[in-house]
Amino acid sequence: MKTSNPVLSRFGQAAERERAAGYAQPGYPQQYQPYPQQDAPGYSSAVSSATAAPMTLDDVVVKTVTMLALLGGAAAATWVLVPDHLLGAAWGAGALVGLVLGLIISFSRMANPALVVAYSIIEGVFVGAVSKAYESAFDGIVLQAVVGTFGVFFVMTMLYKARVIRATPKFAKIMIAVMGGLFAAMLVNLVLSLFGVNTHLRDGSPLAIGFSLVCIVVASLSFVLNFANIEEGVRMGLPQRYAWTAAFGIVVGLVWLYLEVLRLLSYLQGDD
Rank of each mutant, 00 (worst) to 15 (best):
S4F: 12
N5Y: 08
L8H: 05
L8K: 05
R10I: 00
Q13H: 09
R17T: 12
A20W: 06
G22I: 02
G22D: 10
A24I: 12
Q25N: 13
Y28K: 09
P29K: 13
Q30T: 15
P34L: 13
P36I: 02
Q38P: 02
D39G: 04
A40I: 06
A40F: 10
P41G: 03
P41M: 06
G42T: 00
A46W: 04
S49T: 13
A53M: 15
P54I: 15
P54G: 15
L57V: 08
K63A: 06
A75N: 03
A77R: 03
T78W: 11
D84Q: 07
H85R: 05
L86E: 02
A89Q: 13
A89N: 11
A90L: 02
A90V: 09
A93W: 07
A93H: 05
G94I: 14
G94A: 12
G94F: 10
V97D: 05
L99H: 06
L101C: 03
G102Q: 08
I104W: 06
I104V: 14
S106D: 06
R109H: 09
P113D: 08
L115T: 01
L115R: 06
V116D: 06
V117Q: 05
A118C: 04
Y119H: 13
I121Q: 10
I122H: 07
S131M: 01
A137S: 08
A137M: 11
F138Y: 15
G140F: 01
L143S: 11
Q144K: 08
A145I: 00
A145E: 07
V146A: 00
V147T: 08
T157G: 09
R163A: 01
V164H: 02
P169Q: 02
F171T: 04
A172C: 03
K173V: 04
M175V: 04
V178H: 09
M179V: 15
M179A: 15
G180T: 02
G180H: 05
A185G: 09
M186R: 15
S193V: 00
L194N: 14
L194F: 13
G196E: 09
N198G: 08
L201P: 08
G204A: 09
G204I: 08
P206C: 10
A208K: 07
I209H: 12
S212W: 06
L213S: 13
L213V: 14
A219N: 13
L221S: 13
S222H: 15
V224T: 13
I230K: 10
I230F: 04
E231P: 01
E232T: 14
V234F: 05
R235I: 02
R235G: 01
G237H: 09
R241S: 04
Y242N: 06
Y242T: 11
A247Y: 00
A247V: 00
F248A: 06
G249E: 09
V251R: 09
V251P: 04
V251N: 14
L254V: 14
W256A: 15
L259K: 06
L262D: 03
Q269S: 10
D271G: 12
